[in-house]
């Protein structure tokens, strides 16, 4: 929140490497995220269990039980499907959507932020009004409206989250660029007749990348929360594909007989979001110490 660091610039830079290693929660977050990625990507190697395989004889088995000749570490759901396997497939969906959407938001937002910060004028005012309008409305309702209108699915979700959230990047980049424009380095470039695009690409863009990376990491976490909420409300990907949000929604019918169906998918979302947020804090402390508190 606009706290200016009292550490001089040189000291800050030297402390960077040490700070990276000292940030324990950041390291833990990174390990958790990597484990999740590896596990969900290679789930097919650990088990041949089909996430959609229905087994009515092993319905609603609690965690750590063996049923129908298979061991279910996290139990089974109302149709006898293995919860762990389904959660691993759900992780894929969440991560793919969250990261792809951030890539889209980042590309749009950085471009618009650069242009608005560099040229100012009408583009800048237009950007600010659009940002206001976006802030004025709960994103989840806009996303639901678009998904209800266009139909839901993996590409639609990525597009809705990607296009819906570029404004964060645009605002941050615009602010940074505006302050960079005051520097003599930029003034000198322009006086020497360096082209606009070249100034933006060679002199402005590299200077905003750190901030963009920090914003991107928090955006991944926000996207995971939003995607799971949309799935929970029934407007996620195809219902035949397991996701954390839709698993939780299905589990709500079995609260009395299957607590794990409600508890576990939500816990997975929370742990993932916590891990990514810790990585974001870590990056912010290391790359962008002015924003750290």
């Amino acid at each position: 929140m606009g706290i200016t660091s009292t550490v001089p610039a040189a000291g800050r830079r030297r402390g960077g490497a040490r700070r990276l290693l000292r940030h324990k929660s950041g390291l833990v977050g990174l390990v958790v995220l990597l484990l999740l990625i590896v596990f969900s990507a290679s789930i097919g190697l650990f088990t041949s269990t089909d996430p959609a395989a229905i087994s009515l004889t092993s319905r609603l088995k609690p965690p750590m039980t063996t049923a129908g000749g298979a061991y279910h570490l996290l139990g089974t759901d109302a149709l006898g499907r293995d919860v762990l396997v389904r959660m691993a497939y759900g992780a894929r969906i969440s991560l793919v959507i969250a990261f792809s959407a951030v890539a889209i938001s980042l590309a749009i937002g950085v471009l618009i932020g650069l242009l608005a910060g560099y040229y100012g004028g009408w583009l800048d005012s237009l950007l600010m009004r659009v940002t206001d309008a976006q802030l004025a409305f709960p994103f989840i309702l806009l996303a639901l409206t678009v998904l209800a209108a266009l139909g839901s699915g993996l590409p639609q979700l990525i597009l809705v989250l990607g296009i819906g959230r570029w404004d964060v990047f645009a605002r941050v980049v615009r602010g940074e660029v505006r302050s960079l424009m005051q520097r003599q380095q930029i003034e000198a470039c322009r006086a020497l007749g360096v082209g606009d695009w070249r100034v933006m690409a060679k002199h402005l863009l590299p200077n905003v990348l750190n901030t963009v990376l920090v914003v991107a990491s928090f955006s991944v976490a926000t996207n995971i929360l939003t995607e799971s909420a949309l799935s929970f409300l029934g407007l996620g990907v195809d219902p035949s594909i397991p996701t954390w949000g839709s698993m939780l929604a299905e589990g709500r019918d079995y609260m009395r007989t299957g607590w794990w169906l409600t508890a576990l998918p939500g816990a997975a979302i929370m742990v993932t979001v916590l891990a990514i947020n810790s990585i974001g804090d870590w990056l912010r402390d290391a790359l962008d110490p002015r924003q750290a508190d």
Binding site: A221, F232, G245, A249, R252, M255, T262, G266, I269, M270
Partner: peptide, 9 residues
């Protein structure tokens, strides 16, 4: 980090 629909459920 806790999703609202999970906390409520």
């Amino acid at each position: 980090a806790a999703p609202v629909f999970w906390v409520g459920s």
